[in-house]
């Protein structure tokens, strides 16, 4: 299984904790900037909160995509992964999950605190956290495709955002929509189930597409 890949990437992340913290602080700062931009009117902030938190999560997850493969690419480990008798898709799945554990989970854990800044109700906070919990792994999985395609390219960091952000749109819509739906009393069940469906679909398809992309980029 790809468990030891996850273990290895977590170990590497532990040895370079600053990288993990940078992503988290980026997320916190972006979310905290919005009230300064639009003013402290609490009713406006409350309606904006889900969208702001979700867009910030999108950006934070995207900014850290570069790290998913680039260090392995630069020191030759990626070549060894491609030559592994184990399935490359499974290795990629392991790396994407490790990426999520390192960048996505901290965002999920931090989001209720940021939601309080925007005066969200307890229910809304719960839905926001649940939507991020289901949605952020999809960001890592889809992002892996973009990271693999832009491997070793000049200006790969900006390019990956062009490729990946449009694909993130459904996640953004249903993630932020879940919170708004629950606030409007419609219940967030439908939105959350759709996010779950996206998660399952991307668990199956994205590692495979990423493996194909890695072979293309390494040739």
């Amino acid at each position: 299984m790809s468990l030891w890949v996850i273990q290895r990437d977590l170990l590497l992340a532990m040895r370079r904790r600053s990288d993990v913290l940078t992503t988290l602080f980026f997320f916190i700062i972006v979310v905290s900037l919005f009230p300064l931009g639009v003013g402290p009117e609490i009713n406006i902030l409350r309606t904006m909160a889900p969208g702001v938190v979700w867009v910030a999560a999108l950006l934070a997850s995207m900014l850290s995509l570069g790290r998913m493969f680039s260090s392995d690419y630069l020191d030759g480990t990626l070549e060894q992964m491609l030559l592994s008798p184990q399935s490359l898709s499974m290795l990629v799945l392991g790396k994407a999950l490790a990426h999520w554990l390192v960048t996505g989970v901290p965002l999920v854990l931090m989001s209720p605190v940021l939601g309080i800044q925007y005066d969200l109700s307890a229910d809304a906070l719960l839905v926001l956290t649940a939507s991020l919990l289901l949605g952020t792994p999809v960001l890592s999985l889809i992002g892996a495709i973009g990271a693999a395609l832009t491997l070793g390219l000049r200006g790969g960091g900006v390019l990956v955002s062009l490729l990946v952000l449009p694909l993130y749109i459904p996640i953004l819509i249903f993630g932020a929509g879940a919170v708004e739906a629950s606030a409007a009393g419609l219940g967030a069940g439908a939105h959350l189930s759709l996010l779950g469906a996206f998660l399952l679909a991307s668990l199956v398809l994205a590692p495979w597409a990423t493996a194909v992309s890695l072979r293309i980029s390494m040739e």
């Binding site: 973009g146 395609l149 490729l163 597409a209 293309i216």
Partner: peptide
């Protein structure tokens, strides 16, 4: 090939 992957994903 890379373009093909992104077009198909799209």
């Amino acid at each position: 090939k890379a373009g093909a992957v992104i077009a198909l994903v799209g």
